[in-house]
Nucleic acid binder design. Sequence first.
DNA 1: GTCAGTCCGTGGTCTGACCACTTTAGGCCG
DNA 2: CGGCCTAAAGTGGTCAGACCACGGACTGAC
Lengths: 249, 249
Amino acid sequence: MLDIVRQDNDEGSSGADRVFTFFRDRLLSGELKAGDRLLGERELALALGVSRPVLREALRSLAMLGLLDIRHGRGAYVRSADASVLGQALTLCLAPEPNILDDVLQARIAIECQAIRLACVRASERDLQAIAALLDTLVDSLDDPERGGGADYAFHLAIVRASGSGALMKIYEAISPLLMRSHVERRRDTFREPAITSGLVDAHRQVFLAMAERNPDAAERRLREHFEIGDGLRRNNLISTYQAQGTNT
Amino acid sequence: MLDIVRQDNDEGSSGADRVFTFFRDRLLSGELKAGDRLLGERELALALGVSRPVLREALRSLAMLGLLDIRHGRGAYVRSADASVLGQALTLCLAPEPNILDDVLQARIAIECQAIRLACVRASERDLQAIAALLDTLVDSLDDPERGGGADYAFHLAIVRASGSGALMKIYEAISPLLMRSHVERRRDTFREPAITSGLVDAHRQVFLAMAERNPDAAERRLREHFEIGDGLRRNNLISTYQAQGTNT
DNA sequence: GTCAGTCCGTGGTCTGACCACTTTAGGCCG
DNA sequence: CGGCCTAAAGTGGTCAGACCACGGACTGAC
């Protein structure tokens, strides 16, 4: 009867597409906010002039994209946009790509180096204090690969957050899961060597100090150095791994 | 009968989720390649032990994510992962964010600055030649905002491509549509002023030369300068726009 | 007042049918 | 014999109605 969706530019596309676009646009325009509850499927189908299966195809698609939270017996709720979707999409896009890990690391360096520049200018005192606190946590958790890896990530994440750029933040969060695994693993291999761990702490401290001094160039340079060292360690690990394999077999 | 999907970890999730995950994993593992044709919906539903509506919910979701190309009367075909999905996801994630445009620009700077560093090391002679050719195109199309904007974008895109990093490339493509509009518009406002256009060409040329010399630091610095100038122009445009509004109204 | 059972509204699934599009194979006509 | 046209088969697209499963709320008994 109402056929609300018909108003949109909908030629050629199937009903589910129309409904999908309908809701997506409402989400983009802010007409639907996180936490809102949708009407029941039967009512919605009636209101939008489609059958329930078609409506469900659209709703399910939105749920797969993380835009909707559909709960059995409760209803469908609008969910705040989540970086996990981005991460999934990225994973799918990068799946056919070779040596993804190194590649994603490059993206991480890109984001962080720009973020720290912005952070030098825009970070509030509170941001800096938070980062300093995470630096302490980093020192405290040197002997635990699990906690140490988490603290390391939290430190870098705080820098990106301090940049005040939502876009950088979202992209960083999206690529993080892809890095996490290797991150913790590498730490597991190196946390027993005092030379490395002390260097690690020092590198982080240097980065923080440059940021506290609001010096973008220095901050980026030190961050890059930190990454280079990490990259060097990774190579060494690879080499020693192969050497171990060579001697064992 | 066959219930192929049941084998997966499927507790708690609904049927459509199971089927969705089933196909997503086959896509990630490469078991399903781009161009492959899926079985008919009726056969698939039977094979996977679900009803057709449920199967369709999953298939439609995959299609919405750009992983499947479903054509009426033909069948469902696996589609190669596309950056457009990423772009859509990014748009959705960033929708609630304030001043998205400036934010996304920061992401662009981040990607490009890292990409050009990599490109300085990894770009092939062919890559450099391609970029040089685009530089020529840039010069040729100075008087046409539309073509000029396109050439500008092509130039920067070629740099990212020359980085050899698929991840950087995908992310760059994902954020590009968000930038395109403002890009062309800005050009429309400035292409009549020789001082600006000549500066524009010169900036691009400087960037290219530093890259050709394989000098990452210089290349990044010049690229950053290029962005800063663009940012300054954007501000001036905003100011003059407000001034014009003030006098006209 | 608290707890249990029941009822209602919700999403989840199924069946079977019909429509619309595409392709193809067969027959008809030149 | 060859080309065109038509009809049939296969495919996705849609629909209607029914039933199940889950969650919360109401109500009754204790």
